[in-house]
């Protein structure tokens, strides 16, 4: 893990990463030479080849949040900062009030079921004045209840409800933490990785639609 990051850390993102034809795919950019052949166990994919994000804003963030800021990186020219879960709302507040990131584009989550901190929570921000985008990412555990961003950005309301609906992440302090797209009584959170694509809440379908299953 560590040597991989050293090998790729400062290199620009691989330009030919995915476009190669199948035969070429074997000697694709990953520095797999030092590793044992990957036939025995499913090899974890190589980590994201992100570079450091330099500039005024990450310095400000570092100064302000210190340890709570885990990393400031950039991938394919898109900047993102990884922060501790409890620092998300202060960071959003800071960015909104002092750095003009006044438009919350999106909140979403990514599920990594094999990780101790199961979910990545991603906030995408945009600043009209700077014409710049940043992403704030944090890792939270399954049971964690991150603080809601509604007091900072009103528009977070539905976006957080959708994250709850799809992943089951409860946001503390959200004014209206209910499902939004699925029916209220639906069981299960469809975008979690353990849900297969054809799995449905058959009990709900039976009770409400009068058919055996939705398939």
């Amino acid at each position: 893990m560590a040597d991989e990051q050293n090998a790729e850390g400062s290199a620009p993102p691989p330009a030919s990463g995915g476009v190669s034809e199948p035969p070429k795919q074997k000697d694709a950019p990953k520095p797999a030479a030092a590793k044992p052949p990957a036939h025995a166990a499913p090899k974890p994919p190589p980590p994201m080849a992100a570079t450091a994000w330099e500039g005024e804003l990450p310095n400000q963030l570092k100064e302000r949040f210190g340890d709570q800021l885990t990393a400031c990186s950039s991938y394919l020219g898109q900047n993102f900062a990884v922060v501790q879960p409890e620092a998300v709302i202060p960071v959003l507040e800071f960015l909104k009030l002092e750095a003009d990131f006044d438009y919350l584009v999106d909140i979403t989550a990514v599920d990594y079921p094999n990780r101790a901190e199961r979910f990545d929570l991603v906030y995408i921000l945009y600043s009209f004045r700077r014409n710049e985008r940043v992403r704030i990412k944090t890792m939270i555990t399954d049971a964690a209840q991150p603080r809601s961003a509604v007091p900072v950005h009103t528009g977070a309301n539905w976006l957080e409800r959708e994250v709850f609906d799809m992943f089951g992440i409860q946001f503390a302090g959200h004014p209206d933490m209910r499902r939004i797209l699925l029916p209220e009584e639906w069981q299960g959170f469809p975008l979690r990785k353990e849900m297969s694509i054809i799995q449905q809440d058959n009990r709900w379908v039976r009770e409400n639609l009068g058919i055996e299953s939705g398939q």
Partner: peptide, 23 residues
């Protein structure tokens, strides 16, 4: 490309759709 297999990573790309920012 015959096989699309991007390197590990994430991107957010948005365009101006008729209704607003589609990302």
């Amino acid at each position: 490309p015959k096989v699309i297999k991007p390197a590990t990573g994430e991107v957010y790309v948005s365009i101006e759709a008729p209704k607003g920012e589609l990302g």
